[in-house]
Structure formats: structure tokens, C-alpha cells
């Protein structure tokens, strides 16, 4: 729990005149669960896009596992051990649940250009697919089209696919958005279980989730990190209270 597995160093990103990320430094330790919170428009999603390779930073360094990753394409970053989920469900709607997960699993077996082996005969892929479906409790929906799943099932599938490449760092972008209380509780337990031994960076608006799940919390306001600390430290930080919690927690 000492060496940072993912770190950002003075990262900037602008869209035209809008300076969205204004010099963010962050260090995620191995095995740590970290939440990033902040008001709407603070740049949380942009931060995730920068780390996962959807966007290129204008300035600054992002280091994953001692390797610079800023500006690399998403698939390279994934190969280096980072996987992410999306705020808006991002799955293969016309394929079955099993197929969705299997595609995610196949990657780490290097099967992209395998044109001569029958996929049904590659047993360890099928086994891992089954075990992931079991983990996210979708085994019963194995042959359902992903597009026909309920919303929370789709979110679970999304997380299952994120896990499939056995990443060391997981980025979850608002996994609880639009979920009921029961679903949220289940999802928290699920996330806690599956991120065992991995590092987690999570953006979430549900403060109960944030405070119960994370080891440390970083607060992003207008593209800058104004505080990082344990849940208790953040709760008691006056600047955070002022900038953010003051409105939402007490309300």
C-alpha cells in the first residue's frame, strides 16, 4: 500500500476557451479505494477520460505502473492494466450477456486475431466468462440480449465487463446512477468484493456510498483538487464544507 500505481502530475485540459482541468495532481496507491467527488461540472468525467485514453491532456503527465500513458490510445492503456466503466451504459446491446462478457474476457487471452480456433472450444475463456457472470449475478440471464436487461442489470454487466480483463486499476464512473436503495446496497457489496486486491478510482454522487466504500476521498472543484484525505478528514475539512459538502450533505 505504499507505491502509487497511478499518478497524475500537473495535468491540464481545455476545450476551446473552457479550461476544464487546471493542473491536477493525484496519487492512487496500490490496493487503495479512492473516490473523486465534486459538484457537477467540476471535471470528474473529463478526468476519467484523460486517464483512460478517451482524451489527450494538453499538459502534464499520467503514470500507470511506472509508465507514461498520457495520450496513448485506450486499448494500450487497457493492456497496461487499467479498465473503466462508463457513466452512460456502454455495452453491446444486440449481443447476449454471455457474449458481452466473453468478448471482454477474450482480450487477455490475446485472441483478437484468432481465426482458426473455435471459440466454444476454448474452455478457459468459457469458464472465466461463467465465473464473472456469476460474480455479477447475471448467470440466469446468460442468453438474454444485453439491450433487453433491466437498467441495474446492465450496470452490473458493465462492471463485469470492466473486471474481465483482470485489471490492476479500475475506474468506475457513477456506477450507482439511477439505482434504487436495494440495488445500491447490492452494488456496493459487489464493488467491495470485486475490487479486493485492486486499486479503485470511483466517481459517485451518492455520499453514503462514497463514505462507506472509499479509503480516501479527493475533492475536485472547477478542475482543481482542493483536498484529499480519509473520509473523516474530508468530512471535517472546512474548505470542502464550503465548496461542496456544505450544500449537499446538510441539505
Amino acid at each position: 500500500m505504499t507505491a502509487p500505481i497511478l499518478s497524475m502530475d500537473a495535468v491540464h485540459k481545455s476545450f476551446g476557451d473552457a479550461h476544464i482541468i487546471r493542473g491536477v495532481d493525484i496519487e492512487l496507491l496500490a490496493g487503495e479505494r479512492r473516490a473523486v467527488i465534486g459538484p457537477n461540472g467540476a471535471g470528474k468525467s473529463t478526468l476519467f477520460h484523460l486517464i483512460s485514453g478517451q482524451l489527450k491532456p494538453d499538459k502534464g503527465q499520467i503514470i500507470l505502473n511506472d509508465q507514461e500513458i498520457q495520450g496513448l490510445p485506450p486499448q494500450r492503456i487497457n493492456h497496461l492494466g487499467l479498465a473503466r466503466s462508463f457513466q452512460i451504459t456502454n455495452i453491446f446491446p444486440g449481443l447476449t450477456v454471455f457474449e458481452n462478457v466473453r468478448i471482454a474476457v477474450s482480450q487477455r487471452h490475446g485472441l483478437q486475431y484468432s481465426l482458426w480456433r473455435l471459440i466454444d472450444r476454448i474452455h478457459n475463456v468459457s469458464e472465466q466468462t461463467d465465473s464473472i457472470m456469476e460474480k455479477v449475478r447475471l448467470s440466469a440471464n446468460r442468453d438474454t440480449l444485453a439491450g433487453e436487461l433491466s437498467y441495474s442489470e446492465q450496470r452490473a454487466l458493465e462492471i463485469g465487463m470492466t473486471l474481465a480483463s483482470d485489471p490492476r486499476v479500475i475506474l468506475l464512473d457513477e456506477p450507482m446512477a439511477g439505482m434504487s436503495h436495494e440495488e445500491t446496497d447490492y452494488m456496493v457489496a459487489l464493488i467491495r468484493e470485486v475490487t479486493q486486491g485492486r486499486s479503485l478510482l470511483i466517481v459517485e454522487h451518492d455520499m453514503d456510498v462514497v463514505f462507506s466504500l472509499s479509503d480516501r476521498i479527493s475533492v475536485l472543484v472547477y478542475g482543481e483538487l482542493i483536498a484529499t484525505g480519509t473520509p473523516d478528514e474530508i468530512r471535517n475539512d472546512s474548505r470542502v464544507q464550503e465548496a461542496y459538502l456544505g450544500e449537499e450533505v446538510s441539505a
Binding site: F92, G94, L95, E99, R102, I103, S106, H109, L111, Q112, Y113, S114, L115, W116, R117, L118, I119, I122, V125
Partner: peptide, 9 residues
């Protein structure tokens, strides 16, 4: 094949 499934994806 695995590749064939990826084409659909």
C-alpha cells in the same frame, strides 16, 4: 472464432 465474435462487437 474469437475474431468472428469481435466483428459483431
Amino acid at each position: 472464432t474469437p475474431y468472428g465474435r469481435l466483428v459483431l462487437a
